[in-house]
Structure formats: C-alpha cells, structure tokens
Simulated scan of single mutants.
Amino acid sequence: MGERIYLDNASTTFPKPAAVPEAMVRYMTEAGTNIGRGDYSSAFDVEDAVFCARERLCGLLGGEDPSQVVFTRNVTESLNLVLKGYLRPGDHVVVSSMEHNAVMRPLSQLAELGVRVDRAECSPTGELDPACVERLIEPGTRLVLTTHASNVCGTVLPIERIAEVCRAHGVRYVVDAAQTAGVLPIDAAGWGIDAVCFTGHKGLLGPQGVGGAVFCNGFASEINALVAGGTGSSSDLERMPAFMPDRLEAGTPNLPGIIGLGAALVWIEERGIDAIREHELALTGRLIGGLAELEDAGKVRVVGKKSLEGRTGVVSIQTPGRELAEVAHELDARHGIQVRVGLHCAPSAHRTLGTFPTGTIRFSVGWANTEDDVDAALAALREILA
C-alpha cells in the first residue's frame, strides 16, 4: 500500500491550505493574548484578526453586518443555539427529511418539551419541492430549518426558493450550511435567510473546533443565549450585553481556531469558490462515470442523483452482496483509500434514500484531490468487488 488517498472531505477537509496551520502556530508562538481582556497592542492585533474573520464570513455568506457573525465550537452548537434559543413549547417547526442529527437530536429534545416538528418529505434522490414545505406551514409555525446539501448523497436543496416561501408566510428560515459554506454561493441577506449556520473545518478549510452563525433580518435579537458569562465588555453588568456579537458569545473564544479559519478564508478568496466547485464537480463526474460501469455489472448501487446538476462532491454507494464495512476496510487496508461507511449521523436522510438501516459507503472529494485519486478508488473497487 502506498500513500493514503483521502476521500472523506464531507467529514472534514484534508489537507488544509498551508497558510492555516502557519497562522495558528504564529498566533500561539508570537501573540497568544486574549481579546477584550487586555489593553495592549498584541491584544488589539488579535482582536483585529478576529474582526477580519467575521468580515470575510459576512461577505462570503451574504450577511448584513460583521457584528451579526457569532462564533461557536461547530455547526452543531450553532444549530442548538438557534433551535433552543428561539423555540418555545407550543411552537411548530418544519424541517426536511434529509436533516443531520445535529438538527434532529436537539429537535427531539425540544419535542419532549412541547415543540411540534414536521418533516417535508424529499424524493428518493434527496430533492425537495418547496411546495412540500409550504403545505406544512400553519399559524403556529415559527421556524423552517433545512440543510443546504445532504451529507449523505450531495443533493442540494433549493434554499433560495424555500426562503421565498418562508417570507411569504412570515416564518423565520435557517440554513444548515455544514456541507456548502466555502463551496456553493450563499447570499443570506439577499435571499431572505434569517441565519446561516456553518462549521469551519469542512468547505471553509479551517481547523476543527470553530464554527458559527451569520444572522440577518434582526433574528439574533430574538435568540436567547445558551451560555452566559464574561465577554470582556460591559463588565459592570451581571447580565449579558445587549449588543452583538457579545450577546451570544460568552467566555474565551477558540482564538487559534478563528485565526486559522481567517487564513483559510483568505485562501478561498484568492482561489475563488467557483474554481473550487468546478474542480470538485469535475472529479465527482469522473467518479460517477466510473461507478456507472460497476452499477451496470450489478456490483454497486449509486445512491441519490447521478447527474452533476444540483449536487456537491459527495457520492454514496451500496455494494449488493458485500458488507459495506468490509469493503470500506479493504479500501483502506489494501489500497490506502479512506472513505466513510455507515449512517453518517443522518438516519432520516438514509430512510428517505432507502438505505436505512444498512447505510452506505461515502466518497467525498475536496480541493486537494486529483483525477489519479478518483481513478485509484475506482480501480480498488473493481478489484475488491470482482
């Protein structure tokens, strides 16, 4: 076995651009100060770096104001902040049937407290008709939340059209952009989306441990903070500050992570998300094309859409007659090809796609993958499934 071929970028992107670890090490070795807690130059420099990261996220995701960008540990925490900070017993929320457990588990907790949840059913390829969302909206509906793209099969949901439905009914709309921030264009303010929740370590190419939410349309003022504490501001008060982002950010933030993410955002701006997407889709097309031969031979079943329109670089398969975990293990052990197998923390999506409870083997390409990587994965599958 030679060097590893990493095809699990939907879990976390690897490798990161070199500028990301370099920026983090530089902060840890040359600055190392906190923000909002020190009246000296190095603290001001770090604060500037954090603000620049907010500005870039605001621009990339179509926010209205950098102060409305809130940092969290990950997209899961961002989604919990929105759901638990906004919904109350008796409220009604609509989600899609393609949601990740980062949405469904907090909603299950809230359902026990009296929040009602309905799922808009997607097609067997993961596509969603906005009319299915509209039919579920009722007078008590306070929130619609959908993923932007499936982490199982890569299908993209029509968030701009769903936002139009929500605006027409006066309902807040939140998007889980875990799989799309940094890869697909998002214009939160322009499309009427009230919050975009993101993680830093996937398409944004930053480190693990930092995520956040971009709020629009005054939505942040309706969210109750899940965590309260020191902010370095309004220290004369024993309640959280009323202004953003401090109102929703308590305690020392992950400064190495934010600074690493800031470096990744600069890299993405220089490369361009259109170029990144075109590269990943070209590799995805090559992968789907090769899998078609195996599917015709009855060796695999490709799950979800088989075209490149309306999808990301995530492709799932099943291997009829062969245990998925066994095939995934052989891909790694014999060929150095790293993929993810199982239910991908998204049982609702797998039920929609008809792959529950077996799950799938998921291939997900990234900016650093090559045609040779895809060809090696296909060759390995042919050998293993022969």
Rank of each mutant, 00 (worst) to 15 (best):
272 G>S: 10
290 G>W: 04
272 G>E: 10
74 N>K: 11
44 F>I: 09
176 D>C: 09
225 A>Q: 07
197 C>P: 03
77 E>R: 12
203 G>I: 05
225 A>Y: 01
148 H>W: 08
358 T>F: 04
347 P>D: 14
297 A>R: 14
227 V>C: 13
359 G>C: 09
260 G>D: 06
72 T>E: 03
288 I>D: 05
150 S>C: 11
361 I>L: 09
358 T>R: 14
220 A>I: 02
251 G>A: 05
176 D>S: 08
245 P>R: 02
326 E>Y: 10
206 G>A: 10
61 L>F: 09
100 H>N: 15
123 S>A: 15
149 A>R: 04
26 R>K: 15
211 G>V: 05
35 I>L: 11
71 F>V: 05
357 P>H: 09
85 G>E: 12
315 V>W: 01
211 G>K: 03
170 G>K: 05
355 T>V: 09
275 A>P: 02
236 D>G: 14
180 T>C: 05
344 H>S: 12
371 E>C: 05
265 L>K: 02
36 G>R: 08
70 V>A: 02
99 E>F: 02
48 D>V: 15
104 M>P: 00
73 R>V: 06
150 S>P: 02
220 A>N: 06
212 G>F: 00
256 P>H: 03
155 T>F: 05
201 H>S: 06
69 V>K: 06
40 Y>N: 15
211 G>Y: 06
222 E>V: 01
74 N>M: 03
144 V>R: 06
314 V>Y: 09
29 T>Y: 05
169 H>E: 14
330 E>P: 01
142 R>I: 09
250 A>L: 04
163 A>R: 07
39 D>R: 12
375 D>Q: 07
279 H>T: 03
361 I>D: 01
55 E>M: 07
203 G>W: 03
223 I>E: 07
190 G>P: 10
180 T>H: 06
53 A>R: 03
317 I>E: 02
260 G>E: 03
309 E>H: 13
306 K>D: 07
200 G>E: 08
282 A>R: 14
337 I>S: 06
114 G>K: 07
358 T>N: 13
9 N>M: 01
132 C>E: 13
359 G>E: 07
48 D>Q: 12
330 E>S: 13
333 A>H: 08
377 A>L: 14
355 T>N: 10
383 E>L: 00
274 D>G: 06
31 A>C: 10
278 E>V: 02
265 L>Y: 00
358 T>C: 06
37 R>P: 00
213 A>R: 00
95 V>D: 01
183 V>C: 07
158 P>H: 13
170 G>Y: 11
28 M>L: 15
309 E>A: 15
172 R>T: 02
265 L>V: 01
103 V>S: 01
254 N>M: 06
143 L>W: 07
110 L>E: 02
105 R>D: 10
46 V>E: 10
356 F>M: 14
375 D>N: 12
224 N>T: 11
101 N>A: 10
240 M>E: 04
337 I>Y: 06
223 I>M: 06
279 H>W: 02
345 C>V: 14
279 H>S: 04
190 G>K: 07
188 A>W: 00
55 E>G: 01
90 G>A: 09
153 C>N: 15
232 G>T: 02
56 R>M: 10
193 I>F: 11
363 F>I: 04
142 R>K: 15
207 P>D: 13
70 V>Q: 03
236 D>H: 14
